[in-house]
């Protein structure tokens, strides 16, 4: 199982939404979101893993910084068959949600990978440093742009946008640094949709399509994100199609919400 996804060229036409500076920050220190990851196998959904996302303030720096954590683990019933652990920790500038450093630690059936991305926006590069248990170390620099994010900071950045100012069909480009590559993604706002959320019932959500330029880990044009249509803009649901099948990520618990 590979989890979760996610890089660009600027064309104008943002339709009134600034893709540069967030309008408001809808989350706060201490927010914890839990999700369930399910795979569509043989015509049935099978629950596979849990996903936890956290926001943590980092004290003692010259500007406010958040550490955004993204931890995914297979359920204990699966661990005997396929034990997977993924941790992505991204340190972002609190005001702009721009990523500063991203660290990945992964353990997939005993194969480990540790990666560090250092974002240097003034220099226009990200320094990549990767080591894994079954490959040679990799160090390189990649060109980045003013609107380059990693997969975690992208999700939190999207939460800061004011979708009430967007009309359905409007899109804007972003770039994402993922698996040591820059991916170009076109984010399209599809309008509001009501979905069912565990413990919260039916809620209206902003639905976004994330269109990649090419298939990469996921099918390029079958990735959707739902954010609750309230002042928290909590990620409620994500769907994507991998080579192995369709994945559904659903919010199961939200604690420490700002509003």
């Amino acid at each position: 199982m590979r989890i979760l996804i996610l890089v660009l060229i600027y064309v104008a036409l943002l339709g009134g939404v600034s893709a540069q500076v967030p309008s408001t920050i809808p989350y706060q220190n201490g927010e914890v979101l839990n999700f369930k990851v399910s795979y569509f196998m043989k015509s049935l959904w099978t629950d596979l893993a849990g996903l936890e996302m956290k926001v943590i303030d980092v004290p003692g720096k010259s500007k406010p910084i958040n550490r955004l954590e993204f931890n995914a683990s297979t359920f204990s019933s699966w661990d005997s068959y396929v034990k997977i652990r993924h941790s992505y920790q991204t340190w972002v500038d609190e005001a702009s949600v721009k990523p500063l450093i991203m660290k990945q630690n992964s353990d997939v059936k005993g194969h480990t990978k540790d990666a560090k991305y250092s974002f240097k926006f003034k220099s226009g590069i990200a320094a990549i440093d990767v080591s894994s248990s079954d490959g040679s170390p990799l160090k390189k620099d990649l060109t980045i742009y003013a609107n380059t994010y990693d997969i975690v900071s992208l999700l939190y950045y999207l939460r800061t946008l004011d979708f009430e100012k967007l009309s359905p069909g409007k899109s804007f480009p972003v770039t994402v640094l993922f698996l040591e590559r820059i991916l170009k993604i076109n984010v399209k706002y599809l309008g509001k949709e009501t979905i069912s959320i565990e413990k919260q019932g039916k809620k209206s959500c902003y639905k976004l399509a994330m269109e990649l330029e090419n298939n990469f880990v996921v099918k390029k044009d079958a990735n959707f994100l739902w954010l609750t249509a309230d002042s928290n803009r909590t990620p409620a649901q994500i769907t994507a199609i991998f080579k192995e099948g369709q994945v559904l990520v659903k919010l199961t618990e939200a604690k420490g919400l700002k509003n």
Binding site: S62, D93, L100, N105, A146
Partner: peptide, 30 residues
């Protein structure tokens, strides 16, 4: 064990100078 690995990764980053260097890269950008 895995939690310890990720905790160490966080501590290394937050106790070092990497974050301040990265913040310098954001200065005067906009």
């Amino acid at each position: 064990q895995f939690q310890e690995t990720t905790k160490q990764a966080a501590t290394e980053t937050e106790e070092g100078d990497d974050l301040e260097d990265a913040l310098d890269e954001l200065e005067d950008l906009e």
